[in-house]
Computed example of a mutant assay.
Amino acid sequence: MAVEFDYQARTEGLTIEELLREKWQLGKKMVHELRMASAVTGTDGEPIGWTQGLKAGDVLRLRIAEPASSYAPDHGSLTIAYQDEHCLVVHKPAGMAVHPNEPGGTGTLMNQVMAESLAAGRSYAEHVHRLDQGTSGLVLIARHPVAKAVFDRMLEKKEIRRVYFAETDKRFQKPRGRIDAPIGRDRHHATRRRVSPSGQPAVTHYEVLREENGRSLVRLELGTGRTHQIRVHMAFTGHPIVGDALYGGRRADGGGYRLHAGQMAFVHPFTGEELVIDDPQEPVWLEEWTRGD
Rank of each mutant, 00 (worst) to 15 (best):
L19D: 01
L54A: 05
T15G: 03
S123M: 11
L62G: 12
L88C: 07
L60P: 04
L62T: 12
G76V: 13
H86D: 02
D58I: 14
V40Y: 06
V59E: 06
H129A: 06
L62R: 07
A37M: 01
L19V: 10
A56Y: 10
G57S: 09
A119T: 14
H127Q: 02
V90S: 00
W24F: 13
G137K: 00
S77E: 15
V128Q: 01
L34F: 08
G76C: 09
M96C: 08
Q112S: 05
R122S: 12
H32Y: 13
A68F: 11
V59G: 09
T41M: 05
P103I: 14
R63A: 08
R130I: 08
Y82G: 01
G121R: 05
R21I: 15
Q52L: 12
V89A: 00
T51I: 09
V113K: 00
G53Q: 03
K29S: 10
I16R: 04
N101L: 13
K55L: 14
V98C: 06
S69G: 12
R35Y: 15
E17G: 10
V31W: 02
E85S: 12
V113F: 02
I141P: 00
F5Q: 03
P100H: 06
R35P: 08
G76A: 12
A68M: 05
L60I: 11
G13T: 10
A81C: 05
D44R: 07
L78P: 01
Q133K: 13
A56P: 11
S77P: 15
E4I: 15
G42N: 06
G57N: 10
P93W: 04
D6T: 15
M96L: 05
E12W: 12
L54G: 02
E22D: 05
I48D: 03
Q133G: 08
W50H: 03
G134Q: 06
C87M: 03
E116P: 13
Q25P: 10
D74V: 12
L54I: 07
N111V: 09
T43E: 05
V3H: 01
T135P: 01
G121D: 00
M114I: 15
R35F: 15
L140Q: 00
Y7H: 11
M96I: 10
E4H: 14
A39H: 06
R61G: 07
T43S: 07
S69T: 14
H99I: 09
D44N: 11
H127V: 04
V31I: 06
P67N: 05
G42T: 11
R10A: 14
T108Q: 03
L118K: 12
G13S: 08
L34G: 05
R122E: 08
K92V: 09
E33S: 07
M114T: 13
R10D: 13
L19F: 07
E17N: 13
I80Y: 01
D44Q: 10
G121M: 06
G105T: 09
E85Q: 11
H91Y: 03
V89S: 02
V98A: 03
G134C: 08
E116N: 11
T15Y: 04
R130T: 08
K29Q: 06
A120M: 07
A56D: 09
D132E: 03
L118F: 11
A125N: 01
S136D: 01
A119P: 07
R122T: 12
M36P: 04
G76Y: 11
T41W: 06
L78K: 03
T106R: 08
G13R: 02
V59P: 12
G13L: 08
A97V: 08
H86M: 03
E12N: 09
G27M: 06
